[in-house]
Write a protein that binds this DNA or RNA. Structure first.
Length: 197
DNA sequence: ATATAGATGTTC
DNA sequence: AACATCTATATC
């Protein structure tokens, strides 16, 4: 284990607070190919059951959303159009909330990230989107339900972030009033933050 | 720089 | 059928 995972109590804060607190932290994935990690620079809060954009809206409890109903600090992965997206479960047990990690800044294992994403890419194309970073770090749907406190997938201490920007979330235009909630957080000026579509 | 189409897997 | 996306191509 290369880095020291953050303890359980880090995850015991409100989902909006956690979304901000995760900025600057180090997301680490260890595989047989090696270790890859990146600084988290963009997150989004999903606060079911009242958030139309959340998979757990209306307390919808299925095989897919089950992990969100458990305690905080576990990994919620799911597949979106061939891409895997990664979330950290937040909120108390039986409160289905999560934080989507939308972008990271590559730190260790950058060669490995190029191998996985394609050698000809610009560095910022490696991890500047939720589907891109999972591929770069080697995160898959098989990581569903893993704890964030121990290898192979965990979050470690990072740097202090001076300026946090807020905006509406991306890619949820069909979610009624929830579309306008300012629940996207990102590091101001960081070039690995995802672009609008 | 923006805009659009098409590919694609899983869920309900 | 819907979707918390990405890539390639076209055009300014």
């Amino acid at each position: 284990m290369l880095y020291r995972p953050l303890p359980l109590d880090f995850y015991q804060q409100s989902t909006l607070e956690l979304s901000r607190a995760l900025l600057g932290k180090l997301l680490v994935k260890e595989t047989e190919e090696g270790v890859a990690s990146g600084w988290i620079v963009e997150t989004e809060a999903y606060i079911g059951p009242d958030d139309r954009a959340a998979h757990s809206f209306g307390n919808l409890r299925t095989k897919r959303t089950e992990v969100m109903f458990g305690p905080p600090g576990y990994v919620y992965t799911y597949v979106m159009h061939t891409h895997c997206l990664v979330n950290v479960v937040s909120g108390k047990k039986e409160h289905p909330e999560a934080v989507l990690i939308r972008a990271v800044e590559p730190y260790t294992g950058i060669d490995l990230m190029y191998d996985r994403r394609g050698k000809e890419k610009k560095e910022q194309e490696l991890t500047n989107g939720p589907g891109k970073l999972t591929k770069a770090l080697g995160i898959t749907k098989d990581d569903y339900g893993l704890p964030c406190f121990s290898p192979p997938l965990y979050i470690a201490k990072g740097k202090e972030i001076a300026d946090i920007e807020t905006s509406v979330r991306i890619g949820i235009d069909n979610s009624g009033e929830a579309r306008d909630y300012p629940w996207r957080f990102f590091v101001k000026g960081n070039r690995f933050v995802s672009k609008k579509r």
